[in-house]
Nucleic acid binder design. Structure first.
Lengths: 126, 126
DNA sequence: CGGCATCCGAGGGGATACTG
DNA sequence: CAGTATCCCCTCGGATGCCG
């Protein structure tokens, strides 16, 4: 079976593909994917997110959260207690994106051995 | 699957989830996704790729193709004609990644209106 | 606790010129 | 046609410090 036998739904990308590119660039930046995974089971507080996502700085966590909030993918809830508490949560739209994202993560997890082997092979051959 | 590696990384050196992160970072860089989509129907030549992927420079196309080749996701075939011809094609592993990637692209395509509206709302409210 | 402002270095990435 | 090589800008993102 060749690749051309596989049919994929063709989104109307030729006419007006720039919005799609903007969205993909947002989804596919350095940290958004990890925030999505971290929020998949429900609301998480700011510093809890920071601990879950290894290596993210406070600055980038804030920036990325703001962008995702602007896109309507996550919601921010402030509890005016002392000390303050802020919950971040996937919106309905955000949850609909969770399936494709998790498919990607699952793929990466189950193919990491294959990829690492390919890298070794390639580095040896060159 | 071991998603818990990503959600709850051990605070110390986590040797398990980092490979997954490396793979995701590779998939989720600026150009890889678009190369994948461009190759979804079969082999494509270098300059054809360059024309299909709007805005990519020759330099970044070369670099990204090399990385994907190193990871065993695409293959490079040189025809020693004059002028030379080089075909790039998804490997079997690369094709297995196509489904998750296309799911993401399809999502972005069918949700762009929702996201643009959310952005307008957000920019107005602030 | 959950931010924002500022500084600053590394590197991503564009433009251009050259080669097999 | 399909690259490599070089230069260089400019954004990303880490570190630090301050605030409500």
């Amino acid at each position: 079976m060749t690749l051309s036998d596989i049919e994929f739904p063709t989104p109307s990308e030729d006419a007006d593909c720039r919005p799609v590119r903007e969205i993909l660039d947002r989804i596919a930046d350095k940290w958004s994917l990890y925030i999505f995974v971290a929020l998949k089971d429900g609301p998480v507080r700011f510093n809890a997110l920071r601990r879950q996502i290894d290596g993210i700085s406070q600055r980038m966590l804030t920036i990325t959260l703001r962008q995702l909030e602007r896109d309507g993918l996550i919601s921010r809830t402030l509890f005016p207690t002392i000390p303050p508490r802020v919950d971040y949560e996937l919106t309905a739209v955000g949850r609909s994106l969770l399936a494709p994202v998790m498919a990607l993560v699952t793929w990466a997890d189950s193919n990491r051995d294959v990829i690492e082997e390919a890298r070794r092979q390639h580095d040896q051959t060159r």
